[in-house]
């Protein structure tokens, strides 16, 4: 039997391009899981989150990045997402630890990340994003779930002019096209 060499294929196949000085690149990650807080167990979940990731559980629309680079953000009163870019012991150690308090669903294949970075990134986002992007309202480290070009998007602000956009992987091609068009039109 032939030996198969399996490789992971990302939704945008490692896309990277610069349009009008805005760098658009696929944000690749190894795992993305959702954590649902069971009814009336928020206190237990807060303790577990701190123990598992070494950072306090964020408030709604806030995020944390721990020393291993794992990103955690809260998008609802009872829902968080945890994104692991490349930490090797995430599946073997962190996930089983989180499982002791949260309901966990693996959503790695369901989401696609796009990082956008550049001086004119706000101008580009203003064309498709209904949120107030001023730093007073949407500060560094904040995360919001919204709608862009009729598609569900989670937007995370890394720095003043750098964002990561997570959209469903099934429509990631359409979403990338709307980012490209918006970048071309500024």
């Amino acid at each position: 039997m032939a030996k198969l060499d399996l490789k992971i294929k990302k939704p945008l196949d490692g896309y990277s391009k610069v349009i009008n000085q805005i760098k658009i690149a696929e944000y690749q990650f190894d795992n993305l899981i959702s954590l649902a807080i069971p009814l009336k167990t928020e206190r237990k979940c807060k303790l577990n989150f701190k123990k598992s990731l070494g950072e306090p559980m964020p408030n709604i629309e806030k995020s944390i990045i721990n020393k291993s680079g794992i990103l955690g953000f809260r998008i609802g009163l009872d829902l968080l997402l945890v994104c692991n870019p490349s930490h090797s012991s995430f599946v073997k150690k962190t996930v089983p630890s989180l499982k002791q308090a949260f309901y966990i669903t693996d959503q790695t294949g369901g989401w696609c990340g796009v990082r956008i970075d550049g001086d004119r990134v706000i101008e580009m986002l203003e064309r498709i994003c209904p949120l107030n992007l001023s730093q007073k309202i949407f500060a560094i480290g904040d995360v919001k779930r919204t709608i862009m070009d009729h598609l569900n998007v989670i937007i995370f602000r890394e720095t003043e002019k750098k964002f990561i956009l997570f959209s469903p992987s099934s429509s990631s091609g359409s979403f990338l096209k709307s980012i490209e068009i918006s970048s071309s039109n500024i």
Partner: peptide
Amino acid sequence: PLLGPRDASEF
């Protein structure tokens, strides 16, 4: 009440 003003298209 938790997130501030949001566009009606999200709802």
